[in-house]
Design a protein around this nucleic acid. Structure first.
Lengths: 366, 366
DNA sequence: CGCTAGCAATCGCCCATGTAGAGTGTCAAG
DNA sequence: CTTGACACTCTACATGGGCGATTGCTAGCG
């Protein structure tokens, strides 16, 4: 027994072998034997010695043999060690970065779902995996314009234009009917006082102004502004998934039953969303390998995620879903960069948006 | 050789055999042999005789043997003859109809995409196939309110409220910048003249009024109204697909590669949409069996569609997608009834919608 | 003490072979 | 026209042997 066995960590040489093995397996998809490693490891060791090292690695739980006399393949723990300490990340090619940047910034101004969709497609195209992007929470939503229309049955239709050109609308159930004149006055008041302000600011100011004389109006106005976030996209909170079909190309997922369960999970959204939510806590790229996710359905899958931010607020999560055997050294930087660029695109969208640059008069409260 | 061979149509007896064969195959999914038919056909014929009949049916192209010495299975032509002349439709169970009606009428007022989505899910649940519903064209779109907001770069944000409380918005690229005052005047003009009118009417009237003096305004106004239909839902014109994953349960589609192509086609939307469009022409239920669709990808699939109407205008198409071997006698009535009920739900939505019942003043043109 | 060469053993994969079962086509007799 | 009988065909399934890849072990080497 080698000295490695006394420790939980493999020796330097074993780490090298493990790296070569994982890299090779990721490339070829076939179990890797001692002969192959002896030839490609660059260590100039005979297969027999390699075998000893592999036996150690197997004892430590990093690799496993699908059956006697096939080579070894990495376990989830093996992949974990690989991505944590062995992988040599391959930065994205500069042209790809520039193209990606263009796709994200290009005229998606204001439409949260569209830009999420673009990011998702881009992720899928770059990685040949499934891309997933949560629809960004609109942390900063600056009021541009508001309008009320009376409906029947004491309901009022509120139309908000926020940020550049994002139109939101919701129906408010009120205590009594309002005349058109009343609604016009309320809208005028809001437009005059609060155009260019952040919605949360509008909310607090409205609460402060609640002086009793016009309480019912305040109720109307508060409701119209309140809780705008959850209805940001069309389908309420959710994510955009792209390139799911690419997953069917992988042999390890070529079982129809597995694919079916996976796609059903995609449709349900719940499980995937809670999984994505977990990565909000983390700072950078987070990786769930196989069984680590805790969901049986994803046992053969890895999810690589990263939160994306506007300012220093996390507004969403993006990532890719693929088989555990994926090209981590390429995928991780792609997710990383996409998160940064998406954040940047959203940010420029909010702050140097065309409107507020050119029309300061709108922000001055007229 | 029997006398049938001189005709393109099978004899009475052959038709009976064909019916039993198709019914049996749909139920069991296994090729049907002469012995089985002899036992279940109720004709009291020996297997040998049945074999003669089957030979005739095979010559006519209604059935085929996957290989020597397996039973026969229906060809596309066989299914076609079956659904055209042999099938005994099984009306939907009354409770199911009532439940379906409830699902469709229930509080989806105004939201075209939501009601299409509900219909699609219902179709999928009732048939255990994939349900598909095009988002209804809003044939009658009455202008409720319009508003313009200036953006940067000669762009203008137009916000329309149509029908009850449906908010549409689009960005118009104009030739020059407009002042807020100009935009306000344009909006006022439209609101005063056309509130309560149908959008198509507004369009024609605007064209007629194009008198040169205010041409640029007309351009703006026309653009804001024009082509509102394609942007009805969120994702522009399209359809809602439900229960795709159910298709993976069928053995005839259990090949991963086939499934992949099918799902990619679903994602593309184009091919499916053109196929659905074809059934707009037809009056009632239309069926595309296997290769009849003209799309290789759908060779093993049947699509059962029906247009649905508001008033007497066809506003959309719905249907189901499944393997050619599906329970036609149940599926056809389900599609039929769903189309009728969806039309009815949309109709009640438009005509006795809460707004127009209670606020006739809005419709009178002020 | 670690590395290596050699060797027997193990196991999955592939292919050929054999067999059972299901169904067909045909033909002569009823 | 129908039927029973028979030979024929083809698939599905199980069986078994050979092949190749790879391992674990052990003895020997530096």
């Amino acid at each position: 027994m080698g000295t490695e066995l006394t420790s939980d960590l493999p020796s330097e040489r074993a780490r090298h072998v493990l790296r070569i093995l994982v890299e090779h397996y990721i490339r070829e998809g076939q179990p890797v034997g001692s002969r192959t490693l002896s030839l490609t490891a660059g260590l100039d060791l005979s297969p027999a010695t390699i075998r000893n090292v592999m036996a150690d690695l197997e004892d430590l739980g990093f690799i496993a043999a699908p059956h006697t006399s096939a080579g070894r393949i990495p376990t989830a723990k093996g992949y974990r060690f690989f991505v944590d300490t062995l992988v040599r990340l391959q930065p994205m090619a500069e042209p790809d970065v520039i193209r990606l940047q263009g796709q994200l910034e290009d005229r998606f101004r204001g439409d949260a779902k569209a830009i999420a969709s673009a990011a998702s497609s881009a992720l899928s195209a770059l990685t040949s995996l499934a891309g997933v992007v949560t629809i960004p929470r609109q942390q900063k939503a600056t009021l541009r314009h508001i309008e009320f229309l009376p409906l029947s049955g004491r309901r009022v239709l509120a139309i908000l234009v926020v940020n550049d050109a994002e139109v939101q609308n919701r129906i408010l159930d009120m205590d009594r009917d309002y005349t058109e004149e009343e609604l016009r006055r309320a809208a005028n008041y809001l437009n005059e006082q609060f155009t260019g302000r952040d919605l949360s600011e509008v909310r607090t100011r409205l609460r402060a102004n609640l002086d009793g004389t016009r309480e019912y109006m305040n109720r109307l106005m508060l409701d119209s502004i309140a809780g705008h976030a959850p209805k940001a996209g069309t389908e309420s909170a959710g994510y955009v998934l792209s390139g799911e079909t690419k997953l069917m190309n992988f042999q390890e997922l070529s079982d129809v039953e597995k694919i079916r369960q996976l796609f059903e999970a995609f449709g349900e959204q719940r499980e995937i969303l809670t999984l994505l939510d977990r990565s909000v806590a983390a700072q950078g790229v987070q990786i769930f390998i196989g069984e680590e996710s805790g969901y049986r359905i994803l046992d053969d899958c890895t999810i690589v995620t990263a939160p994306y931010t506007v300012g220093d607020q996390i507004v969403g999560v993006l990532g890719v879903i693929g088989p555990t055997r994926m090209a981590y050294e390429r995928v991780i930087p792609i997710v990383q960069v996409t998160a940064r660029l998406l954040g940047a695109a959203l940010n420029s969208d909010l702050n140097v948006g065309p409107d507020f640059g050119l029309r300061p008069d709108l922000n001055s409260g007229s």
